[in-house]
Nucleic acid binder design. Structure first.
Length: 295
RNA sequence: GGGCGGUUCGUAUAGCGGCAAUUACUCCAGACUGUAAAUCUGGCGGCCAUCGGCCUUCGGGGGUUCGAGUCCCUCACCGCCCA
């Protein structure tokens, strides 16, 4: 049995995924599925470095602008939505390109993670968030000792999720499963040396500011307040801090650059685990793609 | 020429006789299954390593001391002040 084909393009933030994927998708009659946890949201355009309206129209795009910022979106939803759209694209006889930097999202498809069917329980979370780390951990030890062994005892968010799962009658320690491989995949990673990436990041942030990031954030706050999870994102967080007069404009810009850089570093630890074919230029990518599609 | 202050890990800083040596930033590495651009962790003289152990370090040289980044002498460089 042959699996349907899926092309994946990833790489650190600001490496040029958008530009490359547009060209490749055009050339190989593809459609793009975004694997980006913030481009999901409408009105968050500048700060998430979305492709322009024109570009979005030029090649069919999916999973961009599918939620307003006040609505949460999760890994499980992404996995479902992504699989569904990939299948639709394949049915149309076109090539699906999964493109983005949210490595967990990509990994959910690559490794076919079976995400436990336990929805976020806001009430419970709020209650648990009031407990100290120690109390949380003790609770976990008594409810699911095996999970306590696996989970970082200093990471409250992880512990809370595990407790959330136990609250629904399941055990976190039994849920970390992988399903069978879903697709025949070609994973391309854009190789960007540190110095170059750093330059790209700085340039991009400057452009985002020039293009009106502050105004974008102001508008978002006006409509949705400062609370939405979606605003827990680089660029938005810092501008909000600036608007609240907690930091200066200059500091905000510097922090955006720095935090973006840290983010890129963090992405790297994921990339080391994914089966990535690193490419240095478009030509290389095209060659691999042509071969992959022919197979 | 004289007086004072300084020279410690990439940078900045602590240390005023028991120290492989503080803190901050940078940097490096890692975890990650319904918040993931989130959340969290570790390392930062070298070598081995389980607690731990061994070696080489605080501008250069010399000295005092059981023991010196810490005290003394001297040289070099930097800074400020008086000539």
């Amino acid at each position: 049995m042959t699996l349907p084909k899926l092309v994946i393009i990833t790489g650190p933030t600001a490496a040029g995924k958008t530009a490359l994927s547009l060209k490749l998708a055009k050339k190989f009659t593809g459609e793009i599925i975004s694997a980006d946890s913030r481009q999901i949201y409408t009105q968050m355009d500048i700060g998430t470095a979305k492709a322009t309206k024109k570009e979005l129209k030029n090649v069919p795009h999916h999973l961009i602008d599918v939620r307003t910022p006040d609505k949460d979106y999760t890994l499980a939803q992404f996995k479902r939505d992504a699989i569904k759209t990939i299948k639709q694209i394949q049915k149309r006889g076109r090539v699906p390109f999964l493109v983005g930097g949210t490595a967990l999202y990509i990994n959910a498809l690559v490794s076919n993670l079976e995400i436990p069917e336990v929805k976020p329980n806001k009430k419970l979370r709020k209650k648990l968030e009031k407990l100290s780390l120690n109390e949380l951990y003790k609770k976990l030890v008594s409810l699911d000792p095996e999970a306590a062994y696996i989970i970082d005892p200093k990471n409250p968010r992880r512990i809370i999720r595990a407790l959330e799962i136990t609250a629904s009658g399941k055990l976190y320690s039994q849920t970390r499963k992988k399903g069978p491989q879903l697709f025949d995949m070609l994973v391309l990673g854009i190789n960007a040396p540190g110095a170059k990436l750093k330059r790209n990041i700085e340039r991009r942030v400057d452009i985002q500011i020039k293009n009106g990031l502050v105004k974008e954030v102001k508008n978002l706050i006006k409509r949705y307040g400062k609370k939405p999870q979606a605003f827990d994102a680089i660029g938005y967080r810092e501008v909000i801090a600036y608007l609240e007069k907690k930091i200066t404009f200059k500091e905000a810009i510097a922090q955006i650059k720095k935090n973006t850089w840290y983010f890129a570093k963090r992405q790297n630890t994921w990339f080391r685990k994914l089966p990535i074919n690193w490419i240095n230029n478009q030509g290389q990518a095209e060659k691999m793609l042509a071969k992959f599609i022919r197979q």
